[in-house]
Write a protein that binds this DNA or RNA. Sequence first.
DNA 1: CCCTGATTCGC
DNA 2: GCGAATCAGG
Length: 201
Amino acid sequence: MSWTDERVEVLKKMWGEGQSASQIAKELGGVTRNAVIGKVHRLGLSNRTTTGAAKPDAKAAAPSAPKKPSKPKAAPPKAAAKVAEPAPVAEPETEVEVEAKPIPKSPARRAIIPAGQPLPPQPSNNEISAEALAKVSEIEKKAKRLTLMELTERTCKWPVGDPATDDFWFCGLPTQSGKPYCEAHVGVAFQPMSSRRDRKR
DNA sequence: CCCTGATTCGC
DNA sequence: GCGAATCAGG
């Protein structure tokens, strides 16, 4: 695989969105996360302040080559700008000036749940600790939002949203330990059967 | 152990 | 330029 313009585009986009290198690699396919990281660095976009990492001195000591500030090249000859630019169909338009940039987000709410389908383990307001619930909604902001295909053995499989809706995804955060869910979701998924007071014993 | 990104260096 | 190997941190 090679770094075509499209692939670089995806790389830039996802990296900008804060996706991890491994996720980007999976998305692109045919490359490892190392490749992605290498490319990211070569492209010059690196800083993102996530997990600390940067040890110039370790095994191979070759510190005599400082950084060279990349030259700001402007005006790439290649036609770019295809990001979400739909339908270049021939249009009898007289004005090309269309600066209307509506938010691409159009949540068409239609929460329709197929009857008879077992609902996902969404936390009902039962006896789940308020803390756990709060924690859940908290981490859902940071969820990886994986699709079904992207789930692995160690990604949280907690479903979020309605399966019948567009915004349905899986948490995707790292599982805590052999559990199918991340820490926060484990908290609400596995209730320590508390309500079971020793009835007759 | 799992993950993360950073760096080096042979290709 | 590329990315596996390696390192280092969480």
